[in-house]
Measured scan of single mutants.
Amino acid sequence: MATGGRRGAAAAPLLVAVAALLLGAAGHLYPGEVCPGMDIRNNLTRLHELENCSVIEGHLQILLMFKTRPEDFRDLSFPKLIMITDYLLLFRVYGLESLKDLFPNLTVIRGSRLFFNYALVIFEMVHLKELGLYNLMNITRGSVRIEKNNELCYLATIDWSRILDSVEDNYIVLNKDDNEECGDICPGTAKGKTNCPATVINGQFVERCWTHSHCQKVCPTICKSHGCTAEGLCCHSECLGNCSQPDDPTKCVACRNFYLDGRCVETCPPPYYHFQDWRCVNFSFCQDLHHKCKNSRRQGCHQYVIHNNKCIPECPSGYTMNSSNLLCTPCLGPCPKVCHLLEGEKTIDSVTSAQELRGCTVINGSLIINIRGGNNLAAELEANLGLIEEISGYLKIRRSYALVSLSFFRKLRLIRGETLEIGNYSFYALDNQNLRQLWDWSKHNLTITQGKLFFHYNPKLCLSEIHKMEEVSGTKGRQERNDIALKTNGDQASCENELLKFSYIRTSFDKI
Rank of each mutant, 00 (worst) to 15 (best):
E97T: 07
V218I: 13
F73A: 14
W160F: 06
S54D: 04
T329H: 15
F116S: 01
G262H: 10
C264D: 01
R298M: 12
N295I: 15
I312R: 03
I82F: 11
C228K: 01
E49D: 06
C209M: 01
K191F: 11
K294L: 03
K80M: 10
F275V: 05
V55N: 07
I222Q: 11
N179M: 05
C328E: 00
H302G: 14
C186T: 01
M137A: 11
L332C: 06
C331G: 02
N175L: 08
L152T: 01
C239V: 02
Y319A: 13
C53R: 00
T199M: 06
T140I: 06
D277Q: 12
H127S: 14
F116W: 08
L240Y: 10
R145D: 02
G183P: 13
C315V: 01
I222V: 13
D159V: 01
E231K: 01
P197H: 04
G232F: 04
F205K: 10
V108Y: 03
C235W: 01
F285G: 05
V305I: 10
Q299S: 09
C234N: 00
M137Q: 05
G300T: 14
C311F: 03
H236E: 11
Y94G: 02
Q204L: 10
L106Y: 00
H291V: 03
L63R: 01
H48M: 09
S225D: 07
I312S: 03
R298C: 08
N43S: 08
G188Q: 08
V265M: 10
A156D: 04
C264Y: 01
F123Y: 15
K100F: 06
P316W: 04
Q299M: 14
A119K: 00
I82D: 15
G58A: 00
Q61P: 00
G183W: 15
D178F: 12
I158V: 07
S284I: 03
N105K: 08
P270S: 10
K193V: 09
Q245S: 07
C53Y: 02
Q245G: 15
E49C: 08
Y134L: 13
H291E: 09
P270V: 13
V253E: 06
N170T: 12
E147S: 15
Q299A: 07
G227D: 04
N149M: 00
Y171G: 05
E180S: 11
V126A: 14
H226F: 15
I185E: 03
K100N: 13
L233M: 04
G203Y: 12
P330V: 13
E151S: 05
G95K: 07
P269T: 08
V305W: 11
Y171H: 15
D75L: 13
S324A: 04
C196R: 03
F275I: 03
R279K: 05
Y272P: 01
I56D: 00
N43G: 07
T45V: 07
A198T: 10
D178A: 13
A198P: 08
H214T: 09
D288Q: 15
E147A: 14
E231W: 05
D72E: 04
P336E: 14
N149F: 01
N149W: 00
D177R: 05
W278E: 05
L81D: 01
L50R: 04
H127T: 05
L89M: 15
V200G: 12
Q303L: 07
F103D: 00
D169C: 05
H291Y: 06
F115M: 05
C264A: 00
K129E: 09
D39A: 07
T194L: 13
D39S: 12
Y134S: 14
M38V: 07
R41H: 03
S225C: 11
T329M: 11
F91E: 00
G333E: 04
L60R: 00
N149T: 02
D165K: 06
L136Q: 01
R41V: 02
L164A: 13
C264S: 01
A198W: 06
E207L: 09
D101G: 14
